[in-house]
Simulated scan of single mutants.
Amino acid sequence: MKLHHALIVLAAAFSALTLPASAADKVTTEAVHFTQGASSATMKGSFSGYDSVQYTLSARAKQTLHVKIAGSSNANFNVFSPGDVPGAAQALGAGATGTDWRGELPADGQYTVQVYQMRASARRGAKVPYTITFDIR
């Protein structure tokens, strides 16, 4: 009986090591490019479950960034300062569908805007189509 129990534990441990790569949360990173002379850019996307999209854009200290997201009511975003990593640092700002964020930027560098959905809808695997607009002045 002890051998049978040990084999079950060993099989469970082995199966945990062989999970497919798709079992991990997918993080997609996209650079935001402004056309010459433009101060805003709009991008469309979608994701589902615990996946997320991280938009990167360069800006200077004292500029004002305005972020607006539309689409699914599950679409949320966080804004991170240069050098700050989503999940490891506090966000500079946040917003959601119907709740824009606008703020003066504290430093020169590359900002990250993380688009995600809350855990309750992510757990259900909800698909989140969205349109996000970045405006820098």
Rank of each mutant, 00 (worst) to 15 (best):
H5A: 12
H5W: 10
L7N: 10
I8F: 11
A13I: 11
F14M: 15
L17V: 10
L17F: 09
L19I: 09
P20G: 04
S22F: 08
A24T: 13
D25H: 09
V27F: 02
E30I: 07
V32I: 04
G37K: 15
A38Q: 10
S39A: 10
S39F: 13
S40M: 10
A41I: 06
A41D: 02
S46R: 08
F47D: 01
S48L: 09
V53Y: 00
L57S: 14
L57E: 05
S58G: 13
Q63L: 08
Q63C: 11
V67H: 06
K68Y: 14
G71I: 02
D84S: 13
V85Y: 01
V85H: 02
G87I: 02
A88Q: 06
A88H: 04
Q90F: 08
A91F: 03
G93L: 02
G93C: 03
G95K: 00
G98S: 08
G98V: 08
G98E: 03
G103Y: 02
A107M: 15
Q117L: 02
A120I: 10
S121R: 13
A122R: 02
R123A: 14
R124L: 07
G125E: 00
A126R: 09
K127W: 04
V128T: 06
V128Q: 01
P129T: 06
P129N: 03
Y130C: 00
T131H: 03
T131M: 03
I132D: 00
I132W: 00
I132G: 01
F134G: 03
D135P: 08
R137P: 05
R137G: 11
